[in-house]
Amino acid sequence: MNVRFERYPVARNAFGDVFDFEREVNSLFENFLGTPWGRVAGSGYPRLDIAESGDETVIAMELPGVKKQDLKVLVQDGLLTVSGERTSPALPEKAKWIRNEVESGSFSRTIELPHPVKQQEISAELNDGILRIHLPKAEEIRPREIRVK
């Protein structure tokens, strides 16, 4: 497949998206043919990653524009729920929208904990729009080296 698109369209309107047309065409192909390896690994909103290392599992979640105080992390009955709200800043007086793609409002996502955790030692931090929740493994499931006597 060799399709080329004009990078900078001749007709320019204020705040037109340079790659809009290209994206539209690409999405037509994708919707029609499907991507070879499926869409997303799992689906849900907000998007998250789960990563495991020796003593803990880290859940990372994309939360741009969400403030710490508008976020709630709850661990209960083997489930982790992250919920909150993204408040959209009010449009200043005499302003008008040109594009409004960013969604605001409340969100919630629940996942099963991958293993028993030390509840008291769970910590979380929010940096550059990524929330990281550290879930320390419960003592009984931590990798343990057995010394041979």
């Binding site: 900078y8 037109g16 340079v18």
Partner: peptide, 25 residues
């Protein structure tokens, strides 16, 4: 997003970087 030693079990977050351009009036 993750420590180098970690094993990623589920990956939904893209780390390919961002790009977008707008024509200005």
């Amino acid at each position: 997003i993750h420590a180098e030693s970690a094993t990623v079990l589920r990956r939904e977050i893209r780390t390919t970087g961002y790009h977008r351009a707008f024509t200005l009036g």
